[in-house]
Each structure stands twice: as structure tokens, then as C-alpha cells.
Amino acid sequence: MSHTVVVTDFDFPDVELERELCEAHGATLETAQATTPTEVIEAAAGADALLVQYAPITEAVFDALPDLVVVGRYGVGVDAVDVASATAHGVQVVNVPAYCEDEVSTHAIALLLACVRNVSNYDAEIKRGTWDWKRGRPIHRLRGRTLGFAGFGKIPERMVKKVRGFGLDAVAYDPYRSAEEIAGRGAEKVEFEELLERADAISVHTPLTDETRGLFDADAFRVMKESAVLVNTARGGVVDTDALADALTAGELAGAGLDVLPEEPPEPSPLLDRDDVVLTPHVAWYSEESIEELRRTATRDVLRAIVGERPENLVNPDVFESTTPP
């Protein structure tokens, strides 16, 4: 029986890796550049599997594609996929949860250091013809300060190991992990208010949920230290960027390093013109090695699903269990 895998959208140079894997399993690969549910439906009629980068996979998609067995997301988050609708339609959803832990942890540290040492501002000043160390004042010694984490999964764990040589203390807010677990990985568990009060820098690593949307808002920024820095490599919606801009203007915190924004690419924003904000284009996940791992892992998992094998990274395991013969 022939199977069809549709790549709904991608910004890779090509999909030859996916094509080779599919052909080796007797499956056909088709591609599109869909940006709406309607375009996904048109591109994927009769498909057994979807590989999705950014395209929205909504209830309407599942209604219209009754042959669909699995949706594979190129990435950790499955925000673009209506997982509840997938489950209701008996469609498996897979992601790639661990392909870029080293890259994201390194990038978060890079943003932190760029903010603390005022690297971007110095670079801009020099390129404008100004050679003056005083333009970056004040800069404080990093050693002995406290690095806080909002969310404490694999990436923060790697960060704790990587920054150990900087002499930083680590505190973490994560309501889903015990104090013993967090302590065993080099940090002290604290409540959210204490995180805001104690941390000299906070690195955000929470998923985007109803609980975390706008977690860092005007109230949070008022509690943070005026000398503190916020780094976000998680999801843009966790930070209220309008409130962040207001807080920076009011001197309620010292700077921010953001790899993710609520709108990507960003709409006009006061953050874009600030010297105390370092921005990168949702690139923390990227290295040549991680992108190959991402694509290979996602493709192999959807191929497992369409031949009845259990995928390695199944987001909604109840679907597999309910469709597997006893």
C-alpha cells in the first residue's frame, strides 16, 4: 500500500533528506507552502501524514482530511497544531522535543552576556564613529549574581552546567518539579514572586499555555530589580512586550535579550529601536547539526506512524493506544 507524506510548509533549502527517507520506506513525498488551513487542505487531500513547520493545523484540517494518520511538527512546540482536535479525530501528533537543547542553552547564554556586557550598544557606537567605554555604563560584575529560570527543563539544566564557571547562583520557578529534583540539578526552587525579587537575570523556558501567556507583564517587571535582565528563548507570548518596553523606559529593569516575539516577524514595536534590547530572529534552535537532526527525527516518526508502529515522540499517546489492536 502506497503512503503519501505532505510537507505543508518549510523554509529549508530543500526537502531531499525527507524525500530520501520516504522513498526508502516506499512512501511518496509532496510539498507545499501553505499558510492557512484552507491551503493545507488543498495541498494534502488524501495524505496519510503531514510534516508541518509553521502552517496552522486546525480542526477544519482534521475534518477535511479523513485519511490522516499523523501530523509531525518540525520543532519542540506544537502550538500550531490543534492537538485536542487531532486526538478527537484519532490522528497522532509527533514533535521533536530534544534536538536543540545544546543550541538553545548556548544562545540564551549568548543573549545574557550580550545584555550584561552591553555588547550590541558598544558595537553600534563604534560603527557610528564613537570609541568610548563610558557609553556602556553601568556594567556590573557577573560573578556572585543570581541567574533565575522560569521553567526548569532540559535546557535550563544545561545552562546551569555551562555557566558554572561564571560563579552564578541559580534559582528556578517551576510548579511541576520538586525542590529535590531542582536542587539535584544545581538550582534552588523558588516561587514566582521570589524569582522576580531575587534574580539579577531571568531566562524564560516555559511553554506557551493559558497559564503562562503574559506571565511577564507590567506587574512582574515592577517587582524585578532595576538592574535585572530578561532573556527569552521560549515562546514570545510569555512576555508582554508592550509592558516590557514601558518597563525599560521607566528604568524598572536594565535590558532584555529576546529570540522570540509574540508576532514573528515583528510588527512595529518600540523594542526595535532600543539599545538596551538585543534581538535575534527565533534562531536559538539552529545549527547545521540540529536542523538535520530535526528533519530526520520528524520524518522517521511520521513514517513509523503510517505503518502502524509507535512513534518515539508521540504527543497524544492515547490515540495510538486506542487504535492499536489488543
Rank of each mutant, 00 (worst) to 15 (best):
D219L: 00
L271F: 06
A150M: 11
T130W: 00
E157M: 09
D242N: 14
S178R: 09
A88D: 13
G214A: 10
M224F: 01
L314K: 01
R135Q: 14
G184F: 00
A43I: 07
A250Q: 14
I306G: 03
A256C: 09
D79T: 12
Q53I: 00
Q53D: 14
E20L: 09
T38M: 01
A84S: 13
G308E: 12
L195Q: 07
L215D: 10
I41H: 02
A218F: 04
V260A: 06
A110R: 02
E226A: 13
G153S: 04
R274S: 10
R295W: 02
L112N: 03
P138L: 12
L51E: 04
S269K: 05
F12A: 14
T146I: 15
P265V: 07
D242T: 14
P156N: 13
F320E: 10
A201D: 05
L196S: 09
L314V: 03
E59H: 08
V119R: 02
A187H: 08
L147F: 02
V231Y: 02
A172R: 10
E312G: 13
L113N: 11
E288G: 08
G151N: 13
L195A: 10
E321V: 12
A24I: 00
V61H: 03
V278F: 09
A124W: 07
G90M: 10
E191C: 02
Y54E: 11
E101L: 02
L111A: 03
A179T: 14
I155W: 00
F216S: 08
C22V: 02
A49C: 03
T58D: 06
V15D: 14
Y74I: 05
V81L: 06
D219T: 14
E101A: 08
A298E: 06
L29V: 11
D169K: 15
R213C: 10
L258G: 07
P268A: 12
P138N: 13
G90F: 06
G77Q: 02
E197R: 14
D14S: 14
L215R: 15
F12L: 15
E125R: 11
D210K: 12
V302N: 06
S290Q: 11
E194S: 13
R296Q: 10
R19P: 04
P262V: 12
V78G: 08
P317T: 03
D301W: 08
V302G: 06
D273I: 07
G148P: 11
F216H: 05
G136N: 13
R141K: 13
F216V: 08
L271W: 09
V15Y: 08
F10W: 15
N118K: 15
K162P: 00
K134C: 00
R128I: 00
V69Y: 00
E194D: 15
G167Q: 08
P281I: 12
R185M: 06
P207L: 04
D242W: 01
T146P: 03
A256S: 09
Y173H: 15
A245L: 07
S290L: 06
A243C: 09
N313W: 03
A245N: 09
L111S: 01
T8D: 05
E194L: 09
V52K: 04
Y286P: 07
T209H: 08
A124G: 02
E59P: 05
E180Y: 04
L272M: 15
E20C: 00
R141E: 14
V171T: 00
T299I: 04
V319S: 05
T280K: 04
E194Q: 15
D273A: 15
A150P: 02
T299V: 11
A108G: 13
K161G: 15
R235N: 10
D174E: 14
